[in-house]
Design a protein around this nucleic acid. Structure first.
Lengths: 167, 167
DNA sequence: TCATTTTATCTTGACGTCAAGACAATGGCG
DNA sequence: CGCCATTGTCTTGACGTCAAGATAAAATGA
């Protein structure tokens, strides 16, 4: 049952319905997993909003940010980018096409391996991602305001343990 | 810095890169939010796999499950369904079209309001969602095996508090 | 009553994503 | 040396989603 000291939330109502309709099921895990999914949707939408102010979406930002934080000379292969972004190769090609059209990255041949391509941040891309990440991090601070310092540390630790089971 | 007692994970490496390249930024929140997003992606993919065994995806399951747990007579309007599923009206229309084609729901006119439609679970839809939810909940138990009872309770509590800030 | 606003649903067009496979270059190995 | 498996990237076709707007019915209120 939901803790008495807290108000019933949207997920609690779902659980209560299942308990009524399917009392044979132990739906306890659904609470945690449902809140995680819902929260992630909310947070993703807030993030998209913050990045849109810089003309970016989360997909484009992810690529530019990966190149930026890799450090000089701000060049990686599509394969390198794939390894850190959890998307398919087709998705990455599509993202790179857009960024190239926008003049934020350039594709160059890799002289050491003709199958491979080198993705390089342009000066324009560098300036944009540097401004965007500043705003993005500020927005992330805002999103976490609801939690206290101890809560953030506890939550981060639990998420870390949970995530470790999958990576 | 990352706790000494734990191995560096994917997100830690991203944070370390930012600290090197943009020491002016306080990227602490990025750790928690990054793990939440990554975890959610992993969990969503596992969930899709479990539901695929019943010929459903998470989108279809959400609709059928909402109708099922609402209790007899297993009928709701598209508007009711919208209120619990965090998708746009166009998305809901699309989901209902598919489910109707598959014979899992039926659309009926609402005699009390001709603008409105009544979505009803068919016997076939009822049987399918009842089997699917059993497997789905089993799968959710499996996904949470990585955490102990106390950890689950602590994580759920923190997610609840965090989510409350947005709903 | 009748014009106006609101409500409920659907339509349209654009995106971002994925899985599967195509293609070309490379590396191993007999 | 030459065949074959592997690697790196891109292409294709299908989905699921959204925002914006279209439609039609119902509620409001002058």
């Amino acid at each position: 049952m939901a803790p008495l000291s807290r108000a019933m939330d949207h997920v609690d109502r779902i659980l209560a319905q299942w308990k009524q309709e399917r009392p044979d099921l132990d739906v306890e895990p659904m609470g945690l997993l449902g809140r995680l999914a819902r929260l992630r949707t909310r947070l993703a939408r807030e993030t998209e909003k913050a990045l849109a102010a810089h003309g970016l979406n989360a997909a484009s930002f992810d690529v530019l940010a990966t190149l930026r934080r890799a450090g000089p000379p701000y060049r990686l292969s599509p394969g390198d980018l794939l390894a850190t972004t959890m998307v398919s190769s087709g998705t990455m090609t599509n993202r790179l096409d857009q960024l190239e059209k926008a003049g934020l990255i350039e594709r160059a041949h890799n002289p050491e391996d003709r199958r491979s391509v080198i993705i390089a941040l342009t000066p324009k891309g560098f300036a944009l991602v540097d401004a965007a990440v500043t705003a993005h991090v500020e927005n992330q601070h805002r999103l976490l305001e609801a939690l206290g310092t101890d809560e953030r540390a506890a939550l981060d630790g639990l998420l870390r343990r949970f995530l470790a089971a999958f990576e």
